[in-house]
């Protein structure tokens, strides 16, 4: 597995763990390699989050991509998922779309190679 694939895997792992920590009973995950970019689509229909928490997630995931920091920490993502790590994911992806219809959520992340 190359490093780029491992990074995609660590982002997905982080999201899965975060969903589990917020009482998700079922999670759907789809990862597509679209040549110049990877797309991660994760959803659950029973997430125990408040509107304020989802607002924070949207804000964090929309932080600017920063290629200069991810080498430092990507290996430990997904180990102990806290909401602050959504900001770390935000710096690793180029686009983020969050659809929230309590208690259902869908997160689509796009990372260009």
């Amino acid at each position: 597995m190359n490093k780029e694939t491992k990074k995609i895997s660590s982002i997905a792992n982080e999201l899965i763990n975060y969903f589990f920590q917020n009482s998700a009973k079922n999670i759907s995950l789809m990862i597509n390699d679209k040549g110049d970019r990877s797309e991660i689509n994760i959803s659950s229909d029973d997430l125990n989050l408040t509107d304020e928490e989802v607002e924070k997630i949207i804000e964090y995931l929309n932080d600017e991509r920063e290629v200069e920091t991810e080498e430092y920490y990507w290996q430990i993502m997904g180990i102990d998922s806290e909401i602050n790590e959504m900001a770390a994911i935000g710096t690793m992806v180029d686009e983020a779309i969050v659809n929230w219809n309590k208690p259902s959520i869908e997160i689509i992340l796009i990372r260009y190679k």
């Binding site: 920490y73 602050n84 900001a87």
Partner: peptide
């Protein structure tokens, strides 16, 4: 404070 806790972003 565990890595990654970047206060500039948070």
């Amino acid at each position: 404070g565990r890595t990654v806790t970047d206060f500039v972003h948070l």
